[in-house]
């Protein structure tokens, strides 16, 4: 197990990069997922069709395939995802700004894939809001967008937060795939390096990687349990 001590800096660096990937992908997934959820309930049929098509494609494709399309398809289309080199953001998440695009590709793939699940979690939250709420909002003259923004979504969030948390936990675990699609120095890529390039024993290395993921997922799970318990008491 000495590898955990000897190469602590590698694990710490891998954890930090995976953590950044997760923060960025979760933010993107929540934004895109909310947008798609709004499209799926919009009164405009073409928007509904696009939303439904999106969820059908991304919820039903393996993440490996989505990662593959991002890492090989985007360059084939001539894109290095440079639109993600957002000034300001690149100073916090430095990997976002470098020339090698694979970190950006991983963010895109993980965000787009997770957004489909975020969409469905939010939609189930929207369905949990009593129809009378939206009806009363329409009756005082709120438009569809205002109705969502001021009345429906704030209430939908409450019942969607626990399923959303589960979606994000799954996303954190899924982020382990990034290291196999060109991202250098995240948790899973570090493990690969330590075992194949430096010949470190496999089991201790993967225990280290597991700890890295658990540090992110377990606190999130505990937080969700807390929220759920408080909700259960409040509902009584």
């Amino acid at each position: 197990m000495s590898v955990l001590v000897d190469h602590f800096d590698v694990f710490a660096g891998g954890f930090w990069l995976t953590f950044q990937l997760c923060i960025l992908a979760a933010t993107g997934a929540l934004l895109v997922g909310t947008l798609v959820a709004v499209m799926r309930i919009s009164p405009v049929p073409p928007l509904r069709w696009i939303g439904t098509a999106y969820v059908t494609v991304f919820r039903n494709s393996p993440l490996t395939i989505v990662m593959f399309f991002a890492a090989f398809g985007l360059p084939a289309l001539g894109s290095n995802a440079d639109f993600l080199r957002i000034p300001g953001l690149t100073s916090i998440f430095s990997r976002l700004g470098i020339d090698l695009p694979y970190f950006r590709f991983a963010v895109i793939a993980l965000a787009l894939y997770t957004a489909a699940f975020v969409c469905e979690a939010i939609r189930s939250g929207i369905n949990a809001v009593p129809p009378g709420q939206a009806e009363a909002a329409r009756a005082i003259g709120l438009t569809f967008g205002q109705n969502l923004r001021y009345v429906v979504l704030p209430q939908a969030w409450k019942s969607a937060v626990v399923p959303l948390g589960s979606v994000i936990i799954a996303m954190i675990k899924n982020s382990a795939l990034a290291g196999f699609f060109g991202v250098i120095g995240d948790l899973s890529n570090s493990a690969q390096n330590l075992t194949s390039a430096l010949g470190e024993p496999i089991i201790p290395v993967f225990i280290g990687v597991s700890i890295g993921f658990l540090v992110m997922t377990v606190p999130l799970g505990i937080l969700l349990d807390r929220i759920e318990r408080r909700r259960a008491v409040a509902a009584r």
Partner: peptide, 24 residues
């Protein structure tokens, strides 16, 4: 359905059986 309808609805008050006050 649309902006014009929203404007009209704002001129017609409605009170429901189940109140439908915004719970949040």
């Amino acid at each position: 359905e649309g902006k014009a309808l929203a404007r009209l609805r704002s001129e017609v008050g409605m009170v429901f059986q189940s109140f439908n006050l915004f719970a949040h």
